[in-house]
Amino acid sequence: MLGPATLFVLAFLLLPMLVVLRYSVNRYVPGGLMLQVFTLENYAHFFQDHYFHKVLLTTVWVSVVCTIVSLVLAFPLAYFLARTRSAAKSLLVMLVVFPLLVGNVVRAAGWMALLDTKGVVNSTLEALHIIKAPLNIMYTTGAVMIGIISIVTPFMVLTLQSVLEGINYSVEEAALNLGASPIRTFAKVTLPLAMPGVIAGTSLVFILCMNAYATPVLLGGPSFQMMAQTIYDQISNTQNWPFGAALAFVLMFVTVALTVIAQMFLQRRYKSAE
């Protein structure tokens, strides 16, 4: 019954998670090894400390915005890619995937070079006398969002494209023929039929955003905190494995819960679209 793939998942995915789950109920001893006990104090710590609530809220807020923006950016592009009969199509798909060939850190460095007070954007605007003093783009939530969106959008495009490819174009033509304007055709036919792609794409991208690490660290600056970074700090700086593990589980739970709720909402809205 258990195929090799199942065993693989068990060994390499579930096992580490179980280990972390076990850690999250251990007791932290500053400067020493953690105590193998069963306590919920790490979770209690999270629920009592507003600082961590704020970090979680920032993470959710940034992820929701990035997911929505990348959906809006990706849909027209994915639609174009799915419908074009141009010979350059595979080249265009390559171009979409191309940013993924560069690691997150390198890409964040690129954004730094662009957005810094002495960066390309500011020096260009200054040289053109559009602005007098450099704009503070770096180390803002906006910079983090720009960075994350640039990373997740290719995933959104590819997911949407594969679903849009499967929608028979004549169905849209039928809607137009029956008197639906392009906007109503999109709302009544294209979007409902693309819903599986929207659900898959937003879930995937939301999960990627919730777990973003390098981009918030590099573009957000020291005062900006998202969950992945906070968890890492707990584990590597303070050696607080149990609390780090508890935060990891909070993050995972919130991510899964929000994804499932959003999916259910979307599916109910477009219940007959399958």
């Binding site: 169905v171 023929n177 639906a180």
Partner: peptide, 20 residues
């Protein structure tokens, strides 16, 4: 545009709305 012509078209593959 097609949506203002008031023609009734039957497509080769029928093109029914699969979600309706």
């Amino acid at each position: 545009p097609p949506y203002r012509r008031n023609t009734g078209m039957v497509f080769q593959g029928y093109a029914l709305f699969p979600h309706m």
